[in-house]
Simulated assay, not measured.
Amino acid sequence: MRQVFITRTGGPEVLELREAPDPLPISGAVRIRVKAAGVNFADIMARKGLYPDAPKLPAVVGYEVSGVVDAVGPGTSEDWLDKEAVALTRFGGYADTVLAPVDQVFAKPPRLTHAESAAIPVNYLTAWQLMVVMGAAAEGETVLIHNAGGGVGLAVIDIGKRRRARLIGTASAGKHEFLKSRGLDAAIDYTQTDWLPEVMRLTEGRGVELILDPLGGGHWRKSYKALRATGRLGMFGASDAAASCLPWPLNLLSVAASMPWFHPLSLMSANKAVFGVNLGHLWEEGAKVRAWGDTLLAGVAEGWIRPHVDRIFPLDAAGDAHAYIEARRNKGKVVLEA
């Protein structure tokens, strides 16, 4: 099989394609011949040495794949053989062959391509946890989506429209028309204007009920200010650390030092809430995640889950895929094709 390794911390050039023997399926697992693998910002953080959950380097990252099951391990139902499947992988996804625990494997939606199917697991499960499970977005509430043009942002738009929420997003101007065609109600160009006064203008000074913020650092403090009473701030990343010009680990320390402290008494007084989401720490909650996944895949069949693949790169061009995302050029998902 072919795998893309992060050989050391650094820029996209540290990614290297290597050959290895095909893995043999173990008990409770299936082997998938990968057609498409999703690329996520966590992979970029791992490449830069900023992702504490990443395996020790050199390592193969990647959390999601779509392909065809060609072998099953002992005790695993042979019904999966030759079936198209989409799966969560605890790393190892940047490959043309992977092993995945059968309880993290789902039937691929027939109406989607493999690339579109690989765009679902991480982004849509994260968005579901943010919007529904913990954010409790309700009809008529206003949701502010930072980095609305990313994979999670587009997933949030799909889910938000389903829940009849009003959706405001921050994104560069070149993405506004596309985002509105996907269902965003109002777009703010954060590169040209301060988004906070604009949010307050759009909400007649009240603020919003739910904010989803992947940026980290002092940006969370600013987002908290935009909440109205009963508002919730959902934090799901710290991408500002990757954008910092400081060397590691100073960039991570700089972002951490600027993060706000939320005191329980002040939260009670303000009638506000803050919460964090990390899908990679839910491996022991498989039943919950599977139920969320079943709902989302049913949403594909019903037409309200619409994964958008912005660009597909060959497996051996994974470094180019990373550079494309880091330049914030993508509108939606970036995928590797094995």
Rank of each mutant, 00 (worst) to 15 (best):
V4C: 04
F5C: 01
T7Q: 14
R8A: 15
G10W: 06
P23E: 10
S27I: 00
V30W: 10
I32Y: 12
R33H: 13
V34T: 11
A37I: 07
G38C: 13
D43M: 09
I44W: 08
I44G: 08
A46S: 13
R47F: 08
Y51H: 07
A54R: 11
A54Y: 04
P55A: 08
P55R: 01
V65D: 08
V68D: 11
D70M: 07
A71E: 15
G75T: 13
D82K: 13
E84Q: 14
V86Y: 02
R90Y: 12
G92K: 10
A95V: 04
A100K: 11
A100G: 04
V102R: 11
F106H: 11
K108P: 11
P110H: 10
L112T: 10
H114W: 07
I120E: 05
Q129K: 08
L130Q: 14
V132W: 09
T142F: 03
L144G: 10
N147R: 03
A148W: 00
A155W: 04
V156M: 08
V156C: 11
D158V: 07
R162A: 12
R163D: 03
G169A: 05
A173G: 03
K175I: 03
K175D: 06
E177F: 01
K180H: 04
S181C: 00
S181Y: 02
G183S: 10
A187I: 01
I188L: 02
T191V: 02
T193N: 01
T193H: 09
D194G: 00
V199T: 00
T203E: 11
E209I: 01
K225H: 12
L227R: 09
G231P: 13
L233T: 05
G234Y: 04
S239M: 14
D240L: 15
N251M: 09
L253W: 10
L253C: 01
S254Y: 12
S254W: 14
A256S: 12
A257F: 10
S258H: 07
P260R: 06
F262H: 09
P264K: 02
S269I: 00
A270R: 14
N271T: 03
F275Q: 02
V277G: 07
H281N: 07
E284R: 12
E285L: 06
V289M: 13
A291L: 04
W292Q: 14
W292K: 00
W292G: 01
I305Q: 08
D310N: 13
D316I: 02
D316G: 03
G319C: 12
I325D: 02
R328L: 14
L336D: 10
E337P: 00
